[in-house]
Design a protein around this nucleic acid. Structure first.
Lengths: 214, 214
DNA sequence: TAGATTGTTAATCGATTAACAATC
DNA sequence: TAGATTGTTAATCGATTAACAATC
């Protein structure tokens, strides 16, 4: 219980990427791969791959490499794709609708369970086979259904209010799309998607590029 | 011309976050701030803030700290918010529409210039004051307008094809929303938003949380 | 068996933090 | 001036890479 050696967030963040590459290899019908070969495909060092994987266990075999399907399944287990985490979306605007329709999440074990809004024009609208519910029904819905994750796609000023509400209802995972760092006094896991931050990094790199080509 | 000492990507990625916090301070009417005070608000060390800022210049004053407005403007300049980069969106599905309507980008100096799709049901539809254009008009449009950035919101299998097309047209910045690492043989800046990677990291953390609370 | 490739320890590199002289 | 706080150098920490014995 919590005594495992601490695994750095840098390693964790690479896991989904390994998972994607292994999925591609599977689709290509490739059954085994060495850290060397994978390192070339991914553009990282073989050493890093072996170090990363050995944080979780010895999945390979000397002289052979890694069995693609086995490694794929193991990383899936580490990431919890079999946990079937259920999620609701708060805010049924374009972003909320986009997430509701994103089939990839289902494939990775995240189950779309409900979507909420305050806008009467949206309430009742069917999105990916589910009707948008009124926010006033959120409490009851969460009490009657096991909900693991809430995706927050509400306007900026509503975000802290909704985040607080959702955390009080006992939801343990928050996926935040507002350009704001959520801090909650609850035992909640928060993952931020700061789109404008990412775009500004692109802007910075473009600016550098322009400078250097002059 | 490219002779500046290399600034690490870790520093760059923190700049938009500084920019956000300084914007908040401005709105609160706070005119000066010390690295100490800012470090408390942001949950990082004062030392890191001073190191980061000094990659770009001495923006502070001993005994006083930093002038909020000045620092805000300086970081804005570094990030290139005054470059007024124009962008087009390829793919007018929910994600494309969400990005087209995201006012935050405009505020940060990114100008919404056009949106394209192949779906006849979407072509002609007005999104944030612009009609969705037919993909077959992309070449002409890009030739007649200075376009800096293309945001790719197309289906998985279309992504590499569209990315290649866009790069050939001379667009220098790509913002990719597909769960795929783009590699292009052109001199193009690519920034990825891998939503399912981010969600899987949340899934991992939730899984750990469940384990540790048992 | 010989060759290949892992798992793992040691070395290196880079990023973060601490310390403090400079100075507003 | 005295106190505060920067800019910057030095120390520490952690992450990446290299090396190689173990072994399939």
């Amino acid at each position: 219980m919590g005594l495992d050696k601490k695994i750095s967030v840098a390693v964790i963040k690479r896991l989904p990427r390994y998972y994607r590459y292994l999925s591609d290899l599977l689709k290509l019908g490739i059954t085994r791969i060495s850290s060397k070969e994978l390192s070339i495909r991914m553009g990282i060092t073989a050493s890093q791959i072996r170090q990363d994987l050995n944080c979780f266990g010895g999945f390979g075999q000397q002289g052979y490499g890694y069995n693609v399907e086995h490694l794929y399944n193991e990383i899936g287990n580490i990431l919890g794709v079999n946990n079937k985490f259920s999620f609701i979306i708060i805010g049924a605007g374009n972003m909320g609708q986009a997430l509701a329709n994103y089939a990839n999440f289902e494939k990775r074990g995240f189950i779309f369970t409900g979507i909420f809004d305050v806008n009467p024009d949206l309430i009742g609208k069917k999105i990916n086979n589910r009707e948008v519910m009124d926010m006033s029904n959120l409490d009851e819905f969460v009490k009657n259904n096991k909900i693991d994750i809430a995706m927050l796609c509400v306007p900026y000023d509503q975000t802290p209010i909704v985040a607080d509400k959702v955390a009080r209802l006992g939801i343990k995972g928050l996926w935040n799309f507002s350009p704001m760092d959520l801090k909650l006094p609850y035992d909640v896991v928060i993952e931020n998607v700061h789109l404008s931050d990412s775009l500004m990094v692109l802007g910075y790199k473009l600016t550098q590029k322009l400078k250097n080509s002059q």
